[in-house]
Write a protein that binds this DNA or RNA. Structure first.
Ligand SMILES: NC(=O)c1ccc[n+]([C@@H]2O[C@H](COP(=O)([O-])OP(=O)(O)OC[C@H]3O[C@@H](n4cnc5c(N)ncnc54)[C@H](O)[C@@H]3O)[C@@H](O)[C@H]2O)c1
Ligand SMILES: NC(=O)c1ccc[n+]([C@@H]2O[C@H](COP(=O)([O-])OP(=O)(O)OC[C@H]3O[C@@H](n4cnc5c(N)ncnc54)[C@H](O)[C@@H]3O)[C@@H](O)[C@H]2O)c1
Lengths: 203, 203
DNA sequence: TACATTTTGTTACTATTTTCACAATAAATT
DNA sequence: AATTTATTGTGAAAATAGTAACAAAATGTA
């Protein structure tokens, strides 16, 4: 079953629901949430329906109930440890970001090849790359972020996979070779800009 | 016509082609490129076909010809000026990045509400937000990047649109309200991590 | 030149996603 | 209690995307 867009939308709904809750709402209708998330009301209902999340006819959905259901889907009962490789521009930005905490995402360690980055002056400890395997095992880490220059990315990827990492966010603008049981989410910021430019300029 | 995935794949092909060219290839077959881009050969051919890009039966595609065709599709004949609002963690990372140049993307100015950021010590000039409209008009800027905290994002978005911006990359984790002729590409890094975690943990 | 081989380009097919339509039902109103 | 109204949940229809199959074309070979 192909659920990619579905999952992405659920995550958007989650953020909208937190916002709406903060604004004092306790119950929402599919069209409220749809308006907030830029999605059609039918799509909202179908997305919830696919995961067996129920509302009440005429009375909409209880926000707290939705958030609980989403927490179960996304396993938000405990923190998810993540490691970061490459303490450069992007790596530093990510390691400084406080917003991951409320998603229960914790960057528990970072790694860099440059000894001058391996200090305790960052918010998270920065180790040499040789320590990846040890730390991954120690903290049962499944997810890693690659934020190294393009020429180093494949080598880092291989090392991560050999250490037991199962999912990778890759910021380097290159398509990494990997076994098909490993998930890779490429975030290519230049391509994101280009595609925005394309759609903007072609009306 | 819904071309979103198509366009994204073309951008991936572009990066693969540049790499393959660097490795000395002059001609590639759909399966070479497909392997490099993690896409089926049929999909590669279909994508090109949709944009009228032709190869030669039995002789594949000339890399230079493909790159030229892609340059036309993505209007790479001249630099594309882009502005950046918010000179914090993400803003600084983006403004330091040298890789945009080879995509002909130029961050020509940045803006921040904090006077201490409005210095000439960054690689690009940082102005107060009141100057957005003036600079946008002066440089004919169509595209902006929002890298401000969530609570400021909508207000910044409104100002950008009022100044004539037509496309926005939004790093703040919120769904911006906007007229439908404006394109918004939301890059929500926490959600990207969450969706990777979802797919990784659900096998 | 005829024949075999390879690879594109496209059409037909399949799968998935989104939209539409409306019955079911809960709440509100008379 | 009956009626009206609003909203969900879902099955059917439409749109989109991706896969497979294969004829057409280019190249190589006997
Ligand atoms: N900065 C941006 O805004 C931006 C935008 C788009 C894409 N990217 C991509 O993101 C990646 C990181 O970009 P950046 O600007 O942070 O780069 P950067 O050069 O600032 O940082 C890279 C870091 O990786 C470390 N490193 C190099 N080789 C390593 C290895 N083998 N193992 C471990 N660490 C290693 C370096 O010491 C450095 O600290 C790059 O691939 C870049 O193309 C960055
Ligand atoms: N840093 C990350 O890794 C990361 C990860 C995910 C999401 N984000 C999101 O990206 C956005 C930026 O994150 P950051 O870490 O760079 O934040 P930051 O706090 O480091 O920087 C924000 C910058 O915006 C400026 N600013 C505030 N209000 C403004 C206004 N009204 N007009 C112009 N400038 C204004 C501030 O002065 C500051 O320089 C946030 O919305 C954040 O949620 C960041």
């Amino acid at each position: 079953m192909y659920l990619k867009n579905n999952i992405r939308r659920l995550l958007v709904y989650r953020q909208c629901l937190l916002k709406l809750k903060e604004l004092g709402f306790e119950v929402i209708y599919s069209y409220n949430l749809g308006r907030e998330a830029s999605v059609s009301p039918e799509q909202v209902r179908k997305d919830f329906s696919k995961f067996g999340i129920k509302g009440k006819r005429k009375a909409g959905y209880e926000i707290d109930h939705l958030l609980e259901a989403l927490d179960i889907i996304f396993k938000k009962d405990k923190d998810q440890n993540v490691i970061l490789v490459g303490m450069g521009n992007i790596g530093k930005a990510l390691s400084n970001y406080k917003g991951f905490a409320q998603h229960k995402i914790v960057i528990c360690a970072a790694f860099d090849i440059d000894p001058s980055k391996q200090t305790k002056s960052y918010k998270i400890p920065v180790y040499p790359v040789e320590d990846i395997s040890r730390i991954v095992k120690m903290y049962h880490v499944k997810i890693a972020i690659i934020a190294v220059p393009k020429p180093a990315a494949q080598e880092v990827c291989n090392r991560l996979i050999a250490s037991g990492i199962q999912g990778i966010i890759n910021f380097s603008p290159t398509n990494l070779k990997h076994p098909k049981n490993i998930f890779i989410n490429n975030i290519d910021l230049a391509n994101e800009m280009e595609s925005l430019i394309y759609f903007t300029l072609n009306q």
